[in-house]
Write a protein that binds this DNA or RNA. Structure first.
Lengths: 253, 253
DNA sequence: TACATCTTCTTGTACAGCCAAGTTCAGCTC
DNA sequence: GAGCTGAACTTGGCTGTACAAGAAGATGTA
């Protein structure tokens, strides 16, 4: 489990601090060493230590205020971006066995929403994959993912019972940024059948667009989770807020 | 609407850049000026410009990679932390008229969850307020908030039809950090009555703990939104992830 | 035209130093 | 003991420098 030295000093320091926090060396509420102490300890400059701390703040692990020692925030263990993009990786990281069953795979013209989210011209084709995802054999999520053609052509060659995302990464794709929209919807007839729940049961819906480092969309997915079994957690603060709330008005349907 | 000069150079630069992005000077996908250009323009050092950009990255407004100019990310307009903590402020920022109706106000012993979330000793008292929140007169959310005693004593003196949070801020409280847990639940009988929906209708549940700058909990709230009308959006990336996903296992109830 | 190479530009990482502002704590006073 | 004062400590903000690594565009070649 030895963390890689991530090619930069401040990252390896940040990783060590994170590991120490996870291991309980610094409990929630505890005060961390000062910048100068760590600078001595790692033989680094104060600026480098500050970069390491900034990374921890960005992950919502610690809080920092002028004049006072930094303190550890409590709450759930943090997850990496990679764990959010791949259902399989996430499942393993929380100690469960992921699996998947393909419900449908289509190669067709993009819908309006898909074209917009994937930044495609009107009428462009997409690969659209519907899968039921399971934890320890029990269905917990329906995944409806649209891939633009260049990505989709890779996807069709991948075993869909495992992790498509991880395979795409091995093929050289880099998932770098994502935008998630989360709301609650009633299960449709198909949802109910696939997840083995009542029709109109509450589902947690996550719509997600993932892009590569240069901003090119790689996938647009609408995932529906069993409402009470899966939850998302976000941390934010005055200085650091990637969360927003939206009102769409009453639905017509 | 002239932004305050936030007392530090990098903040005012960040604010100007944000305003320019919002105003469309830099459209989504467009490339921003380089660090050296801005350093000349603002007569600041490169480090200060980098701090300003770091703030934009933290807000999920731009993306940044070594070697390439920074680019503007598309997507929804960003909101401030303040808009998330206060329903009233949020409503006004999205152009709707907020209101509230008190359903219940209690002063009682904390439940186990409340005591844990507010870091109170077992048996300590809390003030617990249940309100129905409305947009343009239509109910969209039920707010069930527990305040620790020092805060609650202020709350009872505040007109509950308006914004309690904003009033608390005027009284000197500082809401600095928050942790949000989002899932979907079926409406209980009480929920259904208060929101005028069917029982077991899907609701989006947000559980939120807000703390002051030193980490002292100020409130613990369980808010339930009409499922299809309100959504939360989160942006994250490989370097910056405050979002995580959790599995709680099948519910017994 | 298509491709490879090279130069230039831009951002990332790290160092050093300075002052300001806020916190903490010991010590003093009442 | 309670409260105030002030020194020491700690983080925030800013400047400057240097080099490395990646991206982008220009140039040259086949």
């Amino acid at each position: 489990m030895t963390a890689p030295d991530n090619a930069s000093l401040y990252r390896s320091i940040a990783d060590e601090l994170k590991a120490a926090i996870r291991a309980g060396v610094y409990a929630p509420g505890a005060r961390l060493p000062s910048e100068s102490e760590l600078a001595d300890q790692y033989d680094a400059s104060r600026g480098t230590i500050r970069q390491a701390f900034a990374a921890l703040v960005a992950d919502g692990v610690i809080s920092s205020r002028r004049g006072a020692r930094r303190t550890v925030l409590g709450g759930p263990r943090l997850q990496s971006f990679a764990d959010l993009v791949s259902f399989s990786r996430w499942a393993r990281s929380v100690g469960e066995e992921p699996s998947g069953r393909v419900a449908r795979l289509e190669h067709r013209a993009a819908t309006l929403v898909e074209a917009e989210q994937l930044a495609l011209a009107e009428g462009a084709n997409v690969y659209h994959l519907t899968r039921v995802r399971m934890l320890d054999g029990r269905p917990v999520m329906i995944e409806r993912t649209a891939y633009p053609e260049p990505v989709g052509e890779l996807v069709v060659g991948i075993d869909p019972s495992g992790s498509i995302t991880e395979r795409l990464e091995e093929l050289g794709l880099i998932f770098a940024d994502a935008e998630h929209t989360i709301d609650a919807v009633p299960a449709t007839a198909e949802d109910a059948r696939l997840l083995a729940v009542r029709s109109r049961a509450p589902l947690l819906r996550e719509r997600r667009r993932t892009t590569d480092p240069s901003g090119v969309p790689l996938e647009w997915s609408e995932d529906r989770y069993l409402g009470q079994e899966v939850a998302f957690t976000v941390r934010n603060s005055v200085n650091r807020n990637a969360l927003s709330r939206w009102h769409s008005g009453p639905e017509v349907s």
